[in-house]
Design a protein around this nucleic acid. Structure first.
Lengths: 233, 233
DNA sequence: CGTTGGCTTGAACTCTCTCAATACGGGTGG
DNA sequence: CCACCCGTATTGAGAGAGTTCAAGCCAACG
């Protein structure tokens, strides 16, 4: 744990130095962007950590592009992915002085990083910001609640159906086709299944005409939203 | 859903009326009690709802005594208990206007209820309160994260071991003996198991000398904390 | 064109669930 | 004070969803 902490902390200043004085391109404007003007842009390569379990929680992050997974590990290697964060999402807030989970780049990622101390003082000054932040954390909590129902009480089929509909909603709200950024192992560790079960359920759904798979299983086409919704329980 | 909403909303003013002008006895003083001075005391009998899924989220609650379970239901009756709240815990904080889960009294409960709107303005005025509240929500979120690991990746034995150690910590931090306020069905729905599995694992732990059971299985004596800790993963 | 990483498929196994019977305990009424 | 009851917990036997282990496949890449 110590080694991980050190290595990641060491990595971060390096990234800062690299991009040092570059002016961060203005991301698409959203209600809470006021919060996030002036953050430091940081690129994280696929598979690299944004922060690790045990790291000092000095920064809060907002995703510019790419996908981040936040996960917990059991000592024997079992993994649970609590959530996937997509462009626009805020993460890293969920902690005390030290992070209690690891955030890794699922694909190549660009984030904006904000010093937490500066942030805290900002929050002190602005009740509006405070409120926004609170809302963001509470939203995370509600997603966590939904995910607990999924993990504790849904069948493999239902888990996959929920997952596909949820990702479709976030990745391509209008369309019926989208590309999953993560691989089967990530999906499995998010849903509390094995990769084999994920694969089997997906092929069965394909046979049942609910979905179509393409591009090595990464592209999903929803052919029967209704059918999936029924499985969604 | 409508019927539940109405009935519970109707219940609440009644409770207020009943206890209307009674001066709430001052609960044991804690750091964040400033937040909760002036709340309305409300008793909830075992099995009754504090609020239901779909109710207007007008109040925030702090437990004076007793145990509350907050749970979600699937349309076919499957249930997931997200958390048990004990004396001193805050619950009912939502980002939306409506509750997204149901809070029920596990045993006879007394809570303090606070109008959310009044609360919000209080928070506006006091950064300190805001910070305390934030801390409380973040703590909930971290417990949720831990629980997701449990639900998604732990075996029945490990789930029960985690649960017992956790409850021991909260109910009797020093002692090795404590009474579970909830029944097997609640434990099962909290851990993503069936009551039979809960019972079987407990019996096995008893045979293994890890615990002792008494009082119809409600009293637990930890005989081998180390052994449980090892199972805890 | 061989290697690599990720995905799929198959067959056997096992942990947990399901269904069903039995036991326990606290409260009530005779 | 005992007998009965009802809700809750335990125990048993059989079934099944999902896992495990192992092999095969496919596309990307050097």
């Amino acid at each position: 744990m110590q080694t991980i902490t050190v290595s990641t902390n060491a990595k971060f200043p390096a990234a800062l130095a690299l991009r040092g004085l570059a002016v961060p391109p203005r991301p698409q404007t959203q209600p809470d962007d006021a919060l996030f003007s002036g953050g430091v842009r940081r690129s994280v390569a696929k598979g690299e950590e944004v922060f690790a379990d045990g790291d000092a929680a000095d920064y809060i992050y907002k995703i510019v592009s790419g996908t981040v997974r936040s996960c917990k590990l059991l000592n024997d290697g079992r993994r649970q992915i609590d959530a996937f964060h997509l462009a626009g999402d805020i993460f890293g807030l969920e902690s005390t002085a030290e992070h209690r989970l690891t955030a890794e780049a699922v694909d190549d990622v660009v984030v904006l990083a904000f010093r937490r101390c500066r942030f805290d003082s900002l929050v002190q000054d602005s009740p509006a910001l405070s409120h926004q932040l609170m809302t963001s954390v509470i939203a995370s909590l509600e997603r966590a609640h939904d995910h607990m129902v999924l993990l504790g009480r849904k069948t493999a089929q239902e888990k996959i159906a929920s997952f596909l509909l949820g990702m479709a909603n976030r990745l391509a709200p209008k369309a019926d086709r989208f590309d999953l950024p993560m691989q089967r192992a990530d999906i499995a560790d998010h849903l509390g299944l094995t990769i084999e079960t994920v694969s089997r359920v997906l092929t069965q759904m394909m046979r049942d005409g609910l979905i179509k798979l393409a591009a090595a299983g990464r592209t999903i086409v929803l052919q029967n939203r209704m059918g999936l919704q029924e499985l969604n329980a």
